[in-house]
Amino acid sequence: MTLKQKFATILMLLLSITTFSQKKLDKIIKRDYQIIECTIAKMSDKTVEYSLSGETLQISLDVSQIARIDFASGRSQTFDVSATSTPVSAANPAVASAEMKINTIAVLPVPYVNSDNLESSEEMAKFAQNDMYNKLLDKSANIFPLTVQDLRTTNSLLHKAGINYKNIDETPIEDLEKILGVDNIVAAKVSYTISQSSTATTYDSGNVKVSDNNKKVKTNDISTTTANTQMYYYYTVYFDMYRNTTKIYSQTRKPLLAVKDSWMDSISYLLKRSPIYTKK
């Protein structure tokens, strides 16, 4: 084999290795906000079987734990647990029904979860819910003929039904509309991770002193070190809208900036692009 042929063989081998290493994987987005990068082998009505990168062992996952699958081909599939639930009137006659208010939208509590340890914050869940509620009120002219249900009414009805930010995702939308007495619902989730970087800066300063006796110059050097820690927040905002139990809008967005409150910008962006919003 000539040197040229050897070079061509090595080049083809390197290209094949690079292509293999860059092979796209499927992504399973779970309802607890965990993302699993894998290769899906088999799907049924009840389970999804997959294997992790570099492994042949197949793992089975119940579809009730899955929110969405983004396939390597570019296709996405959303899993709606409520769609397979037994109708409320037949299965849950004990669910208290509020008087139905037509063209009314309710803002649900917003689960706010650290995806590293899956810890959720009640304070931030309420803050995010209040932020979205106020944004809708400020743009009430843009969502006409919809009106926004008072937040106290929403939270009071949810509390009476035993529903809070921790189990809100487990309650079918048809139940929530019945409990709240509304025909429109906006639901969001905020998942985040935090990282930090530290830098140290040293400043040198000199104090020059002249002696009149011998004309000598003396310098006293002072060194000061300042440490600075920068926090970075990486968010994923999940945003859904429902009308008469049907999902009419579903988007996921990551803020451009990794700053503490950047999730709020994503909420504003998604609200303005939702089907209930019209420009005035």
Results as ranks from 00 to 15, higher is better:
Gln230Arg: 02
Ser44Lys: 15
Met264Lys: 01
Asp169Met: 14
Gln22Cys: 13
Leu52Asp: 14
Leu270Trp: 09
Asn155His: 06
Tyr203Leu: 09
Arg243Gln: 01
Thr278Leu: 12
Ile36Leu: 08
Ala90His: 10
Ala98Pro: 05
Thr39Gly: 10
Glu49Ser: 06
Asp212Trp: 10
Asp261Leu: 08
Gln65Gly: 02
Ala227Phe: 06
Phe79His: 00
Phe144Ile: 08
Tyr165His: 12
Ile59Leu: 12
Met124Gln: 12
Ala141Trp: 04
Asp212Lys: 14
Thr56Ala: 12
Gln22Pro: 00
Ala200His: 06
Ala128Tyr: 09
Asn207Ala: 12
Ile222Leu: 10
Asp70Glu: 14
Met1Asn: 07
Gln230Leu: 13
Ala8Leu: 14
Asp150Met: 03
Ala141Asp: 00
Ser115Gln: 12
Ile10Met: 08
Lys178Gln: 11
Lys23Trp: 15
Ala258Trp: 09
Leu151Gln: 13
Asp62Glu: 12
Leu256Trp: 07
Tyr277Glu: 03
Tyr249His: 03
Ile17Ser: 03
Asp265Thr: 02
Leu271Trp: 03
Asp26Cys: 03
Lys279Met: 12
Lys279Phe: 10
Tyr50Thr: 00
Tyr277Gly: 07
Ile143Leu: 02
Trp263Ile: 02
Asp240Ile: 01
Glu119Asp: 10
Asn220Ser: 11
Glu177Asp: 04
Tyr269Gly: 09
Val237Leu: 10
Leu176Tyr: 07
Val113His: 03
Val110His: 04
Thr84Phe: 11
Ile40Trp: 13
Arg152Gly: 11
Asp45Ile: 11
Leu146Pro: 00
Asp204Trp: 04
Asp62Cys: 08
Val63Met: 07
Thr9Cys: 07
Lys209Asp: 01
Thr9Gln: 14
Ser76Arg: 09
Asn114Gly: 08
